[in-house]
């Protein structure tokens, strides 16, 4: 199989990469675009550490062939703060103890982003359901729930 040229926008910036069509979006982001904030925890769609938003939809970038992202808008953790100002979710995760080891945090924050898009004032149930695809081994999730609640009130 030959490499092809794929164009997409990452955090608002247009990118053109040479990649095999079936290369994982995760690897392309980390190795070709140079954004290492997106993490790999399992490589099989279970942990959500690799979560990014593609055209506003939360996906596991370890399962998405880069071809599918062609022409799309990809948002990674690096695109969330603007001009050095943290997004309210980043602020809340940092203050409320939502990040311990931090490896799940980028994915968890992007999942929370989509959650607050859907439910600006989420109930506890909605928070739990909304984050069920993102595993965290450190926090027991409680401080992550707190962070999402705080951000929704900010």
């Amino acid at each position: 199989m030959a490499k092809i040229t794929i164009e997409f926008r990452v955090n608002g910036t247009p990118h053109q990469v040479q990649a095999f069509p079936m290369e994982r979006l995760l690897d392309v982001l980390r190795e070709k675009v140079g954004l290492t904030g997106t993490k790999e925890g399992c490589g099989e769609g279970e942990c959500g550490a690799c979560s990014v938003l593609v055209d506003g939809e939360l996906v596991n970038s370890c399962l998405v062939p880069v071809l599918q992202a062609a022409g799309c808008d990809v948002l990674t953790i690096e695109g969330l703060a603007s001009n050095g100002n943290l997004h309210r979710l980043q602020e809340a995760f940092a203050l409320a103890g939502g990040a311990q080891c931090g490896i799940c945090t980028p994915g968890m924050i992007l999942a929370s982003c989509q959650l607050l898009d859907r439910f600006p004032q989420p109930t506890d149930e909605q928070i739990r359901e909304g984050l069920a695809g993102n595993l965290c081994r450190c926090t027991g999730y409680q401080k992550i729930f707190d962070a999402v609640r705080q951000a929704s009130q900010a």
């Binding site: 954004l35 290492t36 904030g37 997106t38 993490k39 990674t76 953790i77 690096e78 969330l80 703060a81 943290l86 980043q90 602020e91 995760f93 940092a94 203050l95 103890g97 939502g98 990040a99 931090g102 490896i103 945090t105 980028p106 924050i109």
Partner: peptide
């Protein structure tokens, strides 16, 4: 605030 908290929520932390 956690010392390395900012880097962890922005994706800047280097693993």
């Amino acid at each position: 605030p956690r010392k390395e908290g900012r880097e962890k929520v922005t994706g800047e932390s280097k693993y």
